[in-house]
Amino acid sequence: MALPAQLRPIQHHLRTAQEHEARDPVVAYYCRLYAMQSGMKLDSKTPECRKFLIKLMDQLESMKKEMSDHDSITQEVVGNAHIENYALKMFIYADNEDRGGRFHKNMIKSFYTSSLLLDVLCVFGELSEENIQHRKYARWKATYIHNCLKSGETPQ
C-alpha cells in the first residue's frame, strides 16, 4: 500500500523493516512498532493514513503471533538490548571504515541505518545521552560523506 505523504517521516524505518524481514525479523518487528507509534502521532485522522496504520497494525499482530517464542519480542528488556546491539554494531562498522578512509555506499548506509535504529530505541523509553550523540553523529556522517562522494570530493 502506498505510504500517505503525511507519514513520510516513517518511510525509511519501514524500508529498514522490509530489508530485515528475513535477515533479522526482530529488527523488522521493532522498526514497524516504532513506525506505528510515530504514525499515530503524525496523522491517524485522515482516512488514507488510518487505512495504512490499520494495515500496519495487522502486520504487527501477525508478526507477534509468528514470533511468540522469541524472548526479544515477549520481553521488552531483551528487545531493547537486541536493537541497541544491532544499531551499535552497524555504527562501529561504519566508523571503522570512516577512520580507515574507506568511503563507499555500504558504510554510508550503515551509518544511516544505525541512526534509524537508534530512533527505534525510543520505543523502549528515553534515549541515553550517549545514544542521542551517536544518532546525531551517524546521521551527520551519512549525509556528509554522501554529499562528498556525490560532488567528487574526498571526505575529511
Binding site: M36, M40, R50, E61, G79
Partner: peptide, 27 residues
Amino acid sequence: TGSVGTSVASAEQDELSNRLAKLRDQM
C-alpha cells in the same frame, strides 16, 4: 454524513490505540 464520518474515524482511532496498547502489554 459529516458527523457519522467523524464518529467512524474516532472509533477506528480508538480501536487502533487499544490494539497498540494490547500489543505492547503482552511484551
